[in-house]
Each structure stands twice: as C-alpha cells, then as structure tokens.
C-alpha cells in the first residue's frame, strides 16, 4: 500500500494530509510499504485490522487472512482501500 512521505522532512502519514504535521510542507511523495505488524483485528462484514507500517503510520485495513494481532502481514491496496494478508 502507499503512504505519503513529506519531501522536505521525511515524515510519513496515512491517510493523506494537506500539510506535514511536523514541518508544514505541502509536498508529498508516495512510498510503497509491503509489510506491517497487525496491532488489532475485529470481525464484522469482513475482517478489519489496524496495521503499524514500518514508516510509522497506523493504517486501518481489510484483512484477507487469519493473521492474529502481533503477526507480520503483507500490505496491498485495492483502489484506495488498504489490504493486509
């Protein structure tokens, strides 16, 4: 999945912000993150989780596996929707 990295100070965010929380810059580059750690998971219509990405942001994702909290998961994206497996 893609996260947004401030081109001036390197701070990563997800979802997108208008200005960098740290330095105030409005210039972002998209960076792919392929793995993260599942911090929480819950079942509803689908499995939903909170995944800590290595660049810092905690992303809410659909989970398409049986991964339990604490496990490393791979990250992907379906359109704008983050996916973890």
């Amino acid at each position: 999945m893609k996260v947004f990295v401030c081109t001036s100070c390197g701070r990563a965010v997800f979802p997108h912000r208008l200005l960098c929380p740290d330095c105030g810059s409005s210039e972002w580059r998209e960076e792919r993150v392929e793995h993260g750690v599942l911090e929480a998971a819950v079942e509803r219509e689908v499995r939903v989780g909170a995944v800590r990405t290595p660049l810092g942001p905690l992303a809410i994702t659909r989970i398409e596996s049986d991964a339990e909290p604490g496990a490393e998961v791979s990250l992907d994206q379906d359109g704008d929707t983050p996916l973890a497996r």
Binding site: A40, R44, E45, V46, V48, P82
Partner: peptide, 23 residues
Amino acid sequence: TTAEVLAGIPTGGPNVLFAMLTQ
C-alpha cells in the same frame, strides 16, 4: 477520508473502530 479509505474496506461505520479501541 472515510469515503476514500474506510468505506471500501468496508468498515460499515464506527463500530469496528471502537471495537478495536475497546479491546
């Protein structure tokens, strides 16, 4: 933000988010 990155999961509203916070 909800329309762009949560609705497609689908989270179906805030219950799942507060379920995780409650956990």
